[in-house]
Nucleic acid binder design. Structure first.
Lengths: 157, 157
DNA sequence: CTCCTAATTGCAAATGGTTTCCATTTCCAA
DNA sequence: TTGGAAATGGAAACCATTTGCAATTAGGAG
């Protein structure tokens, strides 16, 4: 039964308690949506889906929940340049495949890629270690993104 | 005379003409501000400085100019998470040192670093080549950023 | 199981960075 | 020098996100 631990407890309940956050219906729904979808949802998209599940959920809750999820590093927040933030589960019970993004600067399409990610992460880990010592900076995560024109946008001009 | 070519032509004039953009007083001033400053200016900061040089310049021009500069890849636009975009010259006549950023998720302070950048760029170049072929994506630039807590923020809790 | 209280929530209003409208001014090729 | 496209400024519009506040709820204490 992927996504759950024994006793029907969602895998993230413990983490919530650790942070002192309460487990509410709204938060369950939002996490569920993020877990089910595989990519890059905007707050509004999450709101729309959540709303069909439970019309009582307001936009404010979406934003506030996404905020604490980011703080907990359960969710990654991205800026792909289209004026709205995008959210993606950063991990899960069975482990989400670590990936990076290719962002089209013309149509804002985003492609996930995993090629070379291991190499990239290896190098970043070494860099991290070095920077942590040098700047006394406690690094929690990183971001790698490539920008350019996707096939469509490149052709149509 | 760094920053200029013969005849007093700023180094970026040719590039402007290539794109069909006109060279105006406002644009000269904005480029000048970016070239003089070494880091991460917001549109408002640029506006304030530009305004002291020539009070006729409006905010709109700042945004529009930064936009075409980004399109020309003369300027890099960053999101450090404080709700406003930051701009930085991406290159110059004498070559700006390529660097990446360490972003404090608590106070939004940004530290430039150049450690390992050569290695990073080497790997990224290989990755780029591979991704370009695989996804038919014409890559123009990349972004690497580390997030975490800076010395101050880490200590004060 | 019931209570109590701090945490959470929804709604509406406020925010604030960025974009758009449009009439006027400016650049620059011919 | 001149015509017309490009650029500009000020004000209004946009719109994703945040905030104020009163009502609701989760969940530990008893």
């Amino acid at each position: 039964m992927p996504g759950r631990h024994r006793k029907g407890q969602a895998w993230w309940h413990g983490r919530f308690r650790g942070y002192g956050y309460k487990i509410t219906a709204g938060r369950e729904i939002i996490l569920g949506i993020l877990a089910r979808s595989e990519k890059h949802l905007s707050a509004e998209e999450i709101y729309i889906t959540a709303h069909t599940i439970n019309p009582a959920i307001g936009m404010t809750t979406i934003y506030r929940t996404l905020d604490i999820l980011s703080k907990m590093r359960l969710v990654n927040k991205f800026d792909f340049g289209d004026g709205r933030a995008r959210y993606e589960l950063s991990e899960g019970p069975k482990g989400i495949r670590h990936h990076h993004h290719l962002v089209c600067t013309s149509c804002n399409r985003v492609i996930d890629y995993t090629d070379f990610v291991d190499e990239e992460v290896g190098l970043l880990t070494r860099t991290e270690k070095s920077l942590t010592g040098k700047y006394n900076f406690k690094i929690s995560h990183h971001l790698i993104q490539f920008y350019g024109l996707c096939e469509n946008c490149h052709n149509e001009k």
